[in-house]
């Protein structure tokens, strides 16, 4: 059965699009046919992070409006066989998507793909609502700070009460927590919430912790999902996350302050 997975958070700038690109690519790498759908109409940037911006001819809104069919709008990834992107429109306004239109497109995608990843816009308004409404599972992306945790908490309330599954009285959306931009030094200094603080409040299953990393900016500037940078901490942390989403047990990495080596300590470190 195809799965619709929404990547959502409430707050903007926490790493939803970075995560959608990484997880979608990670699933495709493991042989699952995957499409990533950008719901951020007006602010599209998934295509930039995936490095396919110059190949966007038709987008999600064109398909919803019947101006193009899905086959025309789906962009095949140039690196991976199993991976596709459905871009958002840059020019349309936010109200271009309708619930019926989104449903039609998602149901059609479900026939063809194993995973449909919905990259949600920020906020809890219509765009975010449409992105999560049809979901089977949700990855709630949270930064270790109070405002982000509050917004994620609100989003969890919406997932459990305003989704199609909840309205139909079906099994609720499966919720996964992903903490991103985690900075062990700043947590140690008390400038950021710890993993325990976050999981204590949100009380859902933690599926990964992605460290704050230079590799993310570098990768997105090159249009390469960071998970393909398998030397980087963030890339490896995303890989572990995909494995956990697929049911594997993996210990968390990159959550401790790196221990300084003997010479570094001797010479004063940083």
């Amino acid at each position: 059965m195809a799965k619709i997975l929404v990547v959502t958070s409430g707050k903007g700038g926490v790493g939803k699009t970075t995560t959608s690109a990484a997880i979608g690519t990670g699933l495709a790498l493991r042989g699952h046919k995957t499409v990533i759908v950008d719901f951020d109409v007006g602010l599209r940037n998934l295509d930039l992070i995936m490095g396919c911006e110059r190949r966007v001819v038709y987008d999600f809104v064109n398909v919803v409006n019947g101006e193009a069919n899905l086959q025309q709008a789906l962009i095949k990834d140039k690196r991976l066989e199993n991976l596709y992107v459905l871009a958002a429109s840059q020019t349309r306004d936010k109200d271009a998507l309708t619930q019926e239109g989104v449903e039609k497109v998602l149901m059609e995608l479900k026939k063809d793909f194993e995973y449909v990843i919905c990259d949600s816009p920020a906020g809890i308004e219509k765009g975010a609502h449409l992105a999560m409404y049809f979901a089977d599972e949700a990855i709630v992306v949270t930064n270790p700070e109070v405002s982000s945790v509050r917004d994620s908490d609100r989003m969890l309330g919406i997932l459990s009460s305003k989704s199609r599954r909840s309205e139909n009285g079906e099994e609720p959306i499966k919720e996964h927590l992903l903490i991103t931009r985690y900075h062990p030094e700043r947590v140690e200094k008390g400038e950021m919430l710890s993993i325990d603080d976050v999981t204590d409040i949100l009380a859902i299953k933690l599926k990964g912790v992605i460290p704050e990393s230079q590799a993310v900016l570098k990768a997105s500037n090159q249009g390469i999902p960071v998970i393909l940078d398998d030397q980087s901490d963030a890339g490896q942390a995303y890989s572990d996350t995909v494995d956990r989403l697929l049911g594997k047990e993996k210990p968390l990495r990159f959550i401790e302050v790196p221990k300084q080596g003997f010479f570094a300590r001797l010479f004063g470190g940083k």
Partner: peptide, 8 residues
């Protein structure tokens, strides 16, 4: 029995 979230 479910957690009650902010805004609910």
């Amino acid at each position: 029995t479910a957690p009650v979230r902010g805004g609910q």
